[in-house]
Amino acid sequence: MAQRSFVVKVPCTSSNIGPGFDVLGLSLSMYLELDVEIDASRTEQRAPTLKYSGQGAEEAPLDPYQNLITRVALYVLRVNGHKNFPTGVSIHVKNDVPFGRGLGSSGAAVVAGLLLGNELGECGIDHDRLLDYALMIERHPDNVTAALIGGFVGSYLLELQGKDAETTKVPLSEVLPEYPSDASEAWGRDPPTPPHGIGHYIRFGWAKEIKVIAIVPHFEVLTAEARRVLPKSYSSHDLVFNLQRLAVLTTSLARSPPDVNLIFQAMQDRVHQPYRKHLIPGLPRILASVTPTSHPGLLGICLSGAGPTILALATDNLDQIASTICDEFRKENITCDVKFLDVIEQGAEVIRS
């Protein structure tokens, strides 16, 4: 077919979710979309053209050999025997996911690139296998799993052995090399093929009454900095504290009607939030003062990913809860956006015209 078009649609995600550090992910109703058109008759156009609108449009690179989405797509293509992009590809990126705010923007870009490459190369790779590709690029499974699979998920990495273990340790610079702007079909050596079963996941239930409020402050927290402040070791007391609550939380969020006290206590954390509080002005005060007692309808509150976005789970009084948290940030001279979101069961998808 000389001409065809399709849309890649990837949800934003929240990770960690209280005690679920590097384990839990949540797929939410805010999206990164790619509108893709292919005109194979345009043989003079060797590289895709990129256009951006929405969040991050001013800072996103338009060179397809530098842009994360298209570099990931090229990785999929090259692993599956295609040395470069097909000719005549035009991509309009429509992004609603804010960069650097703890809502899985990089994970969404990686997953969008995986589906783009899979579709451009007509590779026929299913979502479970695409997760292996994702974990070669994004070495933490929570965000990419939620974006790819959808819903409320728990995930982990396997302890691989031998050659498979070595492959997963290949530097990202070899998985996604820095291509020159005039990259040709002969560029570089073939990238590593992902081993099968790098990670596994399970989908949990989610009670229909539970809504999600994302309070998005107008500043970024770099993931690298948020990782750097974490300790190298933890006390057994703090680890048991989180494990106990994690075991309860994954079941309690599926029960209808939700048990307010059970969920609120189960969303407490001692593994990452205490160490990141100085990166997010007002966070200790917000976590301590916004409770089900002060705000009926609230179920729980936590950092989204590495922050600075605050995630509040609630059944009622959503506007009041959001307003209070925004007021607390305003005391620190920080303005916020508020997003009222749903947990969605549909993960990343390709919609063909």
Rank of each mutant, 00 (worst) to 15 (best):
N261A: 14
S14Q: 08
L115R: 03
H295K: 07
S236Y: 02
A147C: 12
A322W: 07
F329M: 13
F204L: 06
T315R: 03
P292K: 12
L103C: 02
D316V: 03
G154L: 07
P258C: 10
P258M: 10
Y75K: 07
A322F: 06
P308V: 07
T13D: 08
K232T: 15
S15R: 00
I198G: 09
L130E: 03
G150M: 10
G188V: 04
V36D: 01
I334E: 14
K9A: 02
K169R: 15
M267I: 13
H200M: 11
I210P: 10
K232R: 14
L341G: 05
S29P: 01
K83I: 07
D63K: 11
E166G: 11
N317H: 13
F85W: 09
P257R: 07
A247G: 12
G347Q: 11
T13V: 10
Y31R: 00
G117Q: 05
P281R: 13
A207S: 13
A288Y: 12
K339G: 06
L120I: 09
Q55P: 12
L131G: 05
A109M: 03
D190Y: 07
G124L: 10
I38Q: 02
H196C: 11
S15C: 10
L135Q: 10
D238I: 01
I91Y: 04
D164W: 07
G188I: 00
A2Y: 15
V144W: 12
M136V: 14
R285P: 10
I310M: 02
F21R: 01
S294H: 12
Q55R: 15
D238T: 01
L249T: 14
A322M: 08
I215S: 00
G117L: 05
L116C: 02
L230E: 03
P257S: 02
P180T: 03
L160V: 03
C12R: 05
C326G: 11
K94Y: 00
T87N: 14
S105M: 03
L24I: 08
F329T: 11
D96H: 06
I334A: 15
S106I: 02
L253W: 09
R129A: 08
P284T: 10
L160K: 04
G81L: 13
H218L: 00
N333C: 14
T291V: 15
T70K: 05
